[in-house]
């Protein structure tokens, strides 16, 4: 392997996403989600925030700080946490949203950051322990790269998250935007 070519100390891979072990229990995540579940009040708040750039920036900054601290959030703007045992797939160096790559080491560590546990190993453990293992079978759609650095809460309350994932086996075309099935056990 040519990884020897990388000069020691350069730590070039530090810029790549790093698997993050959440600091919040998965069960608590599902409970908190219920409190944030989209409703008319939140939808009005989201609409209000979007009309006021300064308030939106402050709100987004608060979301960023909270979710970075708890989940290593990278602000993709389209939160997958409710379907991944509250473990952020965007902290995978390949940003895989549908499960782990084939390079996970026998001890469960990330191929890119061998000192860290693969985020999908953690996600499977957490989702299954919380009784949400079936969520991992949902097919996660491609990320909308335009939403980066936006508030995923605002996007969620505005209903833009509704077709982030769909049920496995759904034969309908990928981007006929008429799907948006909620993961099992999550009230949306």
């Amino acid at each position: 392997m040519a990884t020897d070519d990388v000069e020691p100390g350069m730590a070039a891979h530090d810029a790549w996403p790093r698997p993050f072990r959440p600091r919040l229990g998965a069960r608590l995540g599902y409970v908190l989600h219920a409190g944030l579940a989209a409703n008319q009040v939140y939808a009005r708040l989201a609409a209000w925030l979007e009309r006021r750039p300064r308030a939106y920036r402050a709100f987004t900054a608060a979301e960023r700080v909270t979710k970075q601290e708890l989940f290593g959030c990278r602000m993709c703007g389209q939160c997958a946490l409710p379907a991944t045992g509250y473990t952020c797939p965007m902290t995978c160096p390949k940003q895989l949203r549908n499960g782990p790559c084939g390079g996970v080491s026998p001890t469960g560590t990330c191929e890119v950051h061998p000192e860290l546990t693969c985020v999908w190993v953690v996600a499977v453990e957490r989702a299954e322990a919380a009784g949400h293992g079936a969520d991992l079978d949902l097919l996660q759609r491609p990320v909308d790269q335009r939403l980066r650095d936006q508030s995923s809460w605002v996007n969620y309350w505005q209903g833009r998250d509704e077709d982030l994932w769909t049920a496995a086996g759904d034969e309908r075309p990928l981007l006929r935007r008429d799907l948006g099935l909620a993961p099992t056990g999550v009230t949306r």
């Binding site: 499960g99 084939g102 080491s105 693969c118 999908w120 499977v124 991992l136 079978d137 496995a168």
Partner: peptide, 13 residues
């Protein structure tokens, strides 16, 4: 590769 319990389901996806 780990998580081995998930590998068949990953192909199923």
């Amino acid at each position: 590769a780990p998580p081995r319990s998930f590998r068949a389901r990953r192909l199923a996806k």
